[in-house]
């Protein structure tokens, strides 16, 4: 077997381990889906009518559902960050990681297994979110190709967020702090166009909202699912994903190779 085959084999073994964890504790693995679903229900039924009235076209609740769903999906991707950093930190604070490190296996497989596992569970939990949105009356205009592109975009975002949160898990000394650090990532979609158009925000915040990564991602997904204008946002989103993934990967790699906890 070549080095690459080893790397793939070891990463698959690690991935199977993480999938086993996810299947065994669905409450933990699908937990991140709960927040976006609750937000969806809350915003649509409590605030939807009045926020929808403020949207262009004065569409009310159903228009807001259409506006909000892509934003909530993006929020769901960001919410997956927490379970990644918790899982990584948990492994790091327990003895098992030292067993992996003293075995002749591909070093990166440990992190790769976590990241790919995290992307998969995020995708599954997003299926739940979309199902709830459809049940509430969300009627996307996307063609199959647009659905595919949307899935690709979500996977890319989930991948980038997972590498970054894996690094956050590595710098956390306790599981508690590992669950707190990604809150920043989770909160970021609120300060973007996920819930209301960035253009309606106060000037300083508007500048931030327009220039932070989750806004172009939300706008791209919204365009793919509901047919709104995408413009350059697609490329900007992919560039953000590549940048975040690279930084997260390089950071995780340095941290994992350089530290031994305990």
């Amino acid at each position: 077997m070549s080095t690459l085959t080893y790397a793939v084999h070891d990463s698959m073994t690690m991935l199977r381990r993480n999938i086993k964890h996810a299947l065994r504790y669905p409450a933990v693995s699908l937990g991140p889906a709960m927040m976006p679903i609750l937000m969806l229900l809350l915003f649509v039924y409590a605030f939807g009518d009045s926020i929808g009235a403020g949207l262009p076209g004065n569409g009310g609740r159903s228009a807001y559902l259409e506006y909000l769903t892509p934003g909530v999906i993006i929020m769901g991707v960001a919410a997956g960050a927490m379970s990644t950093s918790i899982a990584v930190c948990q492994d790091m604070t327990e003895g098992i990681v030292n067993r992996f490190r003293t075995m002749n296996i591909t070093r990166s497989s440990f992190m790769t297994g976590h990241v790919v596992g995290s992307v998969l569970t995020t995708l599954v939990s997003l299926i739940l979110v979309v199902a709830v949105a459809l049940a509430l009356g969300f009627r996307p205009s996307a063609t199959p190709v647009e659905w595919l592109a949307a899935a690709g975009l979500i996977t890319a975002i989930a991948f980038a967020v997972a590498w970054l949160s894996a690094a956050l898990g590595l710098i956390s000394k306790t599981v508690e702090s590992a669950s707190n650090k990604p809150l920043l990532i989770q909160f970021l979609p609120f300060l973007g166009s996920a819930f209301v158009p960035a253009g309606t925000m106060a000037p300083g915040l508007r500048w931030f909202a327009e220039n932070q990564p989750f806004t172009p991602m939300t706008e791209t997904l919204r365009g793919l699912l509901t047919g709104s204008a995408i413009g350059n946002d697609g490329w900007i989103s992919l560039a953000w994903c590549a940048g975040i993934a690279l930084v997260g990967y390089a950071w995780s790699r340095t941290l994992f190779n350089g530290t031994t906890k305990r």
Binding site: H21, N98, T102, R262
Partner: peptide, 14 residues
């Protein structure tokens, strides 16, 4: 080598 550290190196969930 095989290493058994001070803290059990096993996966509690498995």
């Amino acid at each position: 080598i095989g290493v058994t550290g001070q803290f059990a190196a096993l996966d509690d969930l498995l």
